[in-house]
Design a binder for these strands. Structure first.
Lengths: 188, 188
DNA sequence: TCTTTTAATGACTTGACGGTCAGAAAAGCA
DNA sequence: TGCTTTTCTGACCGTCAAGTCATTAAAAGA
């Protein structure tokens, strides 16, 4: 007899709305009413699903890193160093800045980077990426001096390229980026 | 006969206090009273020097980029590509994370990256850096395919390395970083 | 259709913070 | 020491957004 809604789905919809609004207008500019409006519901509804703004934001952080699984795992292992280079290049240039999870994350949580709740999972995410890259590197370029270190540095480099691409709309043309990545990934 | 204070010096002291507080506690956490307390003055005093919180922040942004002049201009022009590589390496690894102007900037204004008041001068700063790097590159490595593009990409790369170094205390060891930079800066 | 239970609403409350300003204090000259 | 001008102070005000809750709406079985 009662009205029933899918609570989990509604939570997700609220998180989606919040994420969009934060990304579009900046986390400090977005009020609870704005998130509600984004969903065409009343403010009170938000509070049926999240006890406070802070907890909503915490849930958003959690979700970010749950979804941010290893993008390398999805793709089939690269058959050669050349193919691997190409894949990295894709990673940097393929996604339009607005789709970039990382940029989205920065634009929302940039100011909270000193907050361990934010920086710890972020650091873990980059380490995970580096580990996966390092394993591929060892396999594909056995002569590479220090694959673990190289992979971690490569992650920093990729992040820098993506960030600038996203933030400043700067598109180092594909050729240049390719040349850079090739240079880095070629055994000395 | 009147009490006289150095207005400009006081403005600087207020900006210093604000910058420290923002850096330490996060810009959203810091209230006007907190900035005043940092200086052991009353809140009203701040308003004798800045008409509003927004203008204080704007002044801080301006100051950031006034002080962040071209770090390349300071150093004498590199006599060789090798020397240039060494200088870039210094740039990435020398300053301790906490002294890094750029990291300080990010930790304060990270969330405001979508705000043109913030992103415009930041983009201009990176472009200025890229231009300077590009000029040096053209001079030192005439064979380099597209020095302008390469320089801009190099700036992204350097920023990525510095950011990760600062944010995650990750120190790609000097050798690895050196190898990366050498690889990028060697004509193909 | 009526009834019951859950879900949604939005006017209202509360507290916090930016900004003001009348009065107090400080400085320095006569 | 008094006098004048500048500077500082902090209680107060207004606004605005988070969070509450009495009331209304929606769903669906009897």
């Amino acid at each position: 007899m009662p009205k029933i809604v899918d609570k989990d789905a509604m939570r997700e919809r609220i998180l989606d709305a919040a994420e969009n609004a934060f990304h579009r207008d900046g986390i400090t500019q977005v009020r609870m009413v704005d998130i509600a409006a984004e969903l065409s519901v009343a403010k009170g509804t938000i509070y049926l699903y999240f006890p406070s703004r802070a907890e909503l934001i915490a849930a958003l952080v959690t979700r970010f890193f749950k979804s941010a699984e290893n993008p390398l795992a999805a793709a089939p292992p690269a058959p050669s160093l050349e193919a691997f280079q190409k894949m990295i290049l894709q990673m940097v240039t393929a996604s339009s800045p607005d789709e970039s999870t990382l940029l989205r994350f920065f634009s929302i949580f940039g100011a909270e980077l000193k907050n361990p709740d934010i920086s710890t999972p972020l650091a873990a995410y980059f380490d995970m990426l580096a580990e996966a890259l390092g394993a591929e590197l060892s396999r594909l370029a056995p002569n590479m001096p220090d694959p673990t270190q190289t992979a971690r540095a490569l992650v920093s480099v990729i992040d820098g390229l993506m960030l600038h691409r996203g933030l400043f709309g700067h598109n180092a043309d594909i050729d240049t980026t390719k040349r850079l990545i090739t240079a880095i990934l070629s055994s000395p």
